[in-house]
Amino acid sequence: MSFLLTCPNCGVREVADFGFGGEVSPRPASRPESLRALAASAYFRRNVAGVQREWWVHRSGCGQWFLAERDTRTNDVKWTARPDEAPAATREPVRA
């Protein structure tokens, strides 16, 4: 795996420059009712074969976290952006 990602601050770098934060899956706003629901929110992800919204961190460069949308089948990265500049989510990213 050696595809390229564009750090919003530093520019295009090899993927090995980055840390992967997993798919965007916001923390629930309040405590889930059951332990099972809590575990699901902590551990379960959609894991789509397709485009997903993800966290990445440029650990070898500026050290900043940013968002990306990537096709998990092809590693084609649609866009990367600082969280405050990211396009609105194209679909609800949370699976409770």
Partner: peptide, 16 residues
């Protein structure tokens, strides 16, 4: 050390 730094900066970013 590195993991904690990333953990802190992630939440800082996420919580603004």
């Amino acid at each position: 050390a590195a993991a904690v730094e990333r953990w802190f900066s992630w939440w800082l970013t996420d919580w603004g």
